[in-house]
Computed example of a mutant assay.
Amino acid sequence: MVKRTRWASLLLTAVLMTITAACGTAPVTETAAKPSEAAGTKVEVKTEVKKPEELKTVKFSEVIRSIFYAPHYVAMHKGFFKEEGLNVDMNTAQGSDKGAAALIAGVADISLVGPETAIYIYNQKGDKTLKIFHQLTVKDGSFLLSRTKLDNFKWSDLEGKSIVGWRPGSAPQMVMSSMLQREKVKADVVTNIASPAMAGAFTSGKGDFIQVFEPIASSLEKEGKAYYVAALGQAFGTFPETSYVATADYIKSNPETIQKFVNAVAKGTKWLNTASPDEIAEALTPFFEGTPKDIIIQSIDRYKKQDTWPAVPEITAEQFEILQKMLIENAVLKPEQKLPDMGAVVDMSFVKNIGKGK
């Protein structure tokens, strides 16, 4: 169970990282001699080369590296952020708690995290509030794999078994917990293994099942170390799992930057829905070095089949209600802490302006 004190501790222990961006070049003046209509005379013509528009650097923190967030990587690779005048300086936090802490500490401008973090921070009643401004995914992105091949998998097959899962209070952990409750199944979910070490722990013999994101799921299958049994996103249904979040102060001070950021990601999603598998694999390969092309293609296909990325990246009141209900169900949010107005931590005005203006 995530305790409020745990969040306070994490926020106080955020590690500062200072990132600087390079500036553009200075204007260049060319001087040329041009014959005039009067014979034997020359006129000096000065032509000023326009200075390229300087890109604004945005310090960005992603929760983990996964093909689940493909629209963002597409926007980076295809230059959609640069088209909007932004340079995205990205790092991987390895957890929504750490991504939120980076925002509070000021070492990240925007984080891609579970939207529940905004609710947790709001209930801390601290100096800063986080606001969700773009809903990237509306399904859980994890897949359940088995150590042994199972035909006609049923959730009851997990009874009494061990599952290598995610940290307590994280979105995938809560989805798994809620699925087990829904199916009335008791299983031992291991939640104390750091996300980068989960696959290694499983292949070393830990657990009967493992819950992982792509491309790790497809990679374990291809290596013959695990067998696919279920997609948590399809099984659980609509759930606002991953959002772009910034502090309310940053959004207020940088509305144009937020709008440009949202526009770029929207372009990435649109491109992803029309591009060929080969084109998508080419765009994502730089972010998943060493991952074979067929694994990337299979990963994208799985996420597309469960309608992971909404055409309109908006967290609705209904989705926000689903989120809070799950938080209460998993005892990480007290009923009296439930937010009656999602406007306290949500600002969808930028999403509504996608495609307008520029």
Score class of each variant (00 low, 15 high):
residue 5 T to F: 13
residue 6 R to Y: 13
residue 7 W to E: 01
residue 10 L to G: 11
residue 19 I to W: 13
residue 34 K to G: 07
residue 35 P to G: 06
residue 39 A to K: 10
residue 42 K to M: 15
residue 46 K to N: 14
residue 46 K to M: 12
residue 55 L to V: 11
residue 57 T to W: 10
residue 57 T to F: 11
residue 66 S to D: 04
residue 67 I to Q: 04
residue 75 A to E: 03
residue 76 M to V: 05
residue 82 K to I: 06
residue 84 E to N: 07
residue 85 G to K: 10
residue 94 Q to I: 13
residue 102 A to M: 15
residue 103 L to T: 12
residue 107 V to G: 13
residue 112 L to A: 08
residue 113 V to H: 08
residue 118 A to N: 09
residue 118 A to R: 01
residue 126 G to P: 05
residue 132 I to N: 15
residue 133 F to G: 10
residue 139 K to Y: 01
residue 146 S to D: 08
residue 147 R to G: 09
residue 147 R to F: 01
residue 148 T to W: 08
residue 149 K to L: 04
residue 151 D to P: 05
residue 153 F to S: 07
residue 155 W to K: 08
residue 157 D to Q: 09
residue 161 K to A: 04
residue 164 V to P: 02
residue 166 W to K: 06
residue 172 P to D: 05
residue 172 P to E: 06
residue 177 S to F: 07
residue 183 E to D: 12
residue 184 K to A: 15
residue 185 V to L: 00
residue 185 V to D: 01
residue 186 K to R: 05
residue 188 D to F: 11
residue 188 D to R: 15
residue 203 T to L: 00
residue 205 G to D: 09
residue 206 K to E: 02
residue 206 K to Y: 05
residue 206 K to A: 05
residue 209 F to E: 11
residue 212 V to L: 09
residue 213 F to K: 11
residue 217 A to F: 00
residue 219 S to L: 12
residue 220 L to F: 00
residue 221 E to M: 04
residue 224 G to L: 02
residue 226 A to V: 00
residue 227 Y to Q: 06
residue 228 Y to F: 14
residue 229 V to G: 11
residue 230 A to S: 08
residue 232 L to R: 00
residue 234 Q to D: 03
residue 243 S to C: 08
residue 256 E to H: 02
residue 264 A to N: 06
residue 267 K to P: 06
residue 272 L to E: 02
residue 276 S to K: 11
residue 276 S to E: 01
residue 277 P to T: 02
residue 278 D to C: 02
residue 278 D to M: 07
residue 278 D to H: 01
residue 281 A to Q: 07
residue 283 A to D: 04
residue 286 P to I: 01
residue 287 F to H: 12
residue 290 G to Y: 01
residue 292 P to I: 01
residue 295 I to V: 04
residue 295 I to S: 00
residue 298 Q to M: 09
residue 304 K to V: 05
residue 311 A to Y: 07
residue 316 T to W: 00
residue 319 Q to I: 06
residue 320 F to K: 15
residue 325 K to L: 13
residue 325 K to F: 13
residue 327 L to F: 09
residue 327 L to R: 10
residue 329 E to M: 14
residue 332 V to Y: 03
residue 336 E to R: 13
residue 340 P to Q: 15
residue 341 D to P: 08
residue 343 G to N: 09
residue 344 A to W: 13
residue 346 V to Y: 08
residue 347 D to T: 03
residue 354 I to R: 02
